[in-house]
Simulated scan of single mutants.
Amino acid sequence: MTVGRLLRTARETLRDAGLRGCLLVRDLDSGDELGLDDDVVLAVASLVKVPLAVATVDRIERGELDGATAVTVAPGRVRTPGPTGLSRFRHPATVAIDDLLYLSVAISDEGASDALFALTPPTVVADTLRRFGVDGISVRHRTRDLTDTPAERLAPEVHLAHSLAASATTAGQGHPVAQLDVGRANSGSARAFVELLHALWRPSRIPAVVAARVRELMGDNLLRQRLAPDFSSDSSRWSSKTGTLLNLRHEVGVVEHADGQAYAVAALSESTVPAAVQPQAEAALAQVARELHDALRAARR
């Protein structure tokens, strides 16, 4: 199949699932890549926890923070579906910074992430990315803001929130929901996240010990309903981070094959279907990401 036909078929698969997809797959050794609207900037939801982890681990390694320091986290008392971990706790909890990192990345815990943001604010995270030469990712607010959306205010009529999310985006990617407005939200493109993944998996300006710890955290990701079914096997390792908010369904990660080849994958998407649960969309996004990956991998053989 030609590249042009592959991309046309990919668009059709996503469109049939009610998705607009922005994807990029890159061979981390050759630099060869295949993408689909990979420079489009979208709100990134919980994908911001990867830059947060990079900045936090870097501060630990530079002696500005001690990973063993205990932090008391106030209860989140969140009752709407979605948030996990400390965000749902009813009572205060005391957790070490190292363990907050695990909770933030592995189970996408908003409470743990905001405890880390309290130590390393969004502006510092953004500055850290720039210092490491990673551009195109804007870090503007804490993750607590992700739990104050129309989905919470309109519960249990959650379909109304998803209808607003899917229909109100402007041509310039503005949006009345702040968390979906790329001018106000944490934002980035598939290409920007592939650049970050490349810098974490191959030698770069990110210190090797920092990159290794973040790779370990992403390898422990427990949210595996999106791309993992198409990338995990006995002969490959899938390390990733998901991001989900209203009509946004994202995942970025790296698949490392037993033969030594490794591919960075960034799949960002927004749905036009006003529903919270969309297994067809999850499957379609993974299918397209895998097809792009397989085309690149086949080209090396």
Rank of each mutant, 00 (worst) to 15 (best):
A171R: 10
N186R: 03
G67R: 13
P75W: 01
S187T: 09
D181C: 06
L23E: 00
H162L: 13
L146T: 08
A168R: 13
A161M: 01
V158F: 03
V255H: 07
S233R: 13
D234E: 15
L6S: 01
G219Q: 14
E282A: 14
L296T: 09
L129S: 02
E64Y: 13
T123S: 02
L52D: 12
A208P: 05
D148I: 02
S240C: 14
A284T: 12
E152A: 01
L292Q: 06
S189C: 07
Y263S: 02
A17N: 11
R213A: 11
L116V: 05
V40C: 09
A264T: 04
S271A: 15
M1E: 07
L116M: 08
R20A: 15
A70R: 03
R153L: 08
D58G: 11
E152M: 00
N247P: 06
A228T: 15
T244G: 09
Y102D: 14
A106K: 08
V50A: 10
A96Q: 06
L164E: 05
G35V: 04
T149E: 02
L160H: 05
H175E: 07
L6E: 03
I60A: 06
L154S: 01
D148V: 05
L19M: 10
G82E: 14
H257N: 07
A118L: 02
A171K: 04
R79Q: 03
L246W: 01
A151N: 00
R213S: 09
P81H: 04
G63K: 15
S239M: 14
L197P: 05
L245G: 08
V54F: 10
R213F: 05
E282N: 14
T94P: 02
T120G: 05
H162C: 02
D259I: 06
L245W: 08
D148R: 10
D39H: 14
